[in-house]
Write a protein that binds this DNA or RNA. Structure first.
Length: 154
DNA sequence: TCCATGCGCGGCC
DNA sequence: GGCCGCGCAGTGG
């Protein structure tokens, strides 16, 4: 499946399409990983991300996102417990920034986020990674942050 | 290899 | 019905 990574819209799934679960989302090809928030590879770049509201340093401003890289979290508490590194899918997102590749954004339900769907997951269109940097997160550990802005459609 | 922004279920109120 | 904690599962990066 990883041999045919699609950048941009996946045929048959327009912006606003809703999925009931990560399994459905995975089967569609809009976001293949069943758990991970970032889909991509270090060689090609990242093609999609999921926002679920579970990363303490994430910010959702609608057309502007600050997305946190992965890694360094305690699986039980969800808190950052070590520094994140620019490897694996964090590096894939950085590559998407350098190449200017479109990234599909999927939002998962999140009661605290007015931009999130009430339930399940929703494809919210294409964004570009404008910038990325390393900083100290709320936890005090290093996190990688990615700023994504929605691509205007005509 | 090992991790990953799940998920269902049962207990409890 | 809703919340929460537990632990299993299965695949792609």
């Amino acid at each position: 499946m990883g041999t045919h990574r699609i950048f941009g819209h996946v045929p048959g799934y327009r912006e606003g399409y809703e999925f009931s679960s990560r399994l459905d989302l995975s089967a569609s090809g809009v976001h293949a990983p069943r758990q991970a928030g970032i889909s991509g590879s270090q060689r090609e770049g990242a093609d999609s991300i999921v926002l679920s509201g579970k990363y303490e340093d994430d910010e959702d401003h609608g057309n502007l996102l600050i997305y946190t890289g992965h890694g360094g979290r305690d699986p039980e508490s969800g808190k950052q417990v070590t520094d994140q590194e620019l490897v694996r899918n964090n590096l894939a997102l950085a590559l998407s920034c350098q190449k200017g590749l479109p990234v599909r954004v999927i939002r998962g339900s999140d009661p605290g986020n007015p931009f999130a769907p009430p339930e399940g997951y929703r494809y919210d269109g294409l964004f570009r990674v404008e910038d990325y940097w390393r900083e100290t997160g709320r936890s005090g550990f290093t996190v990688w942050r990615f700023r994504l802005r929605k691509i205007d459609q005509e």
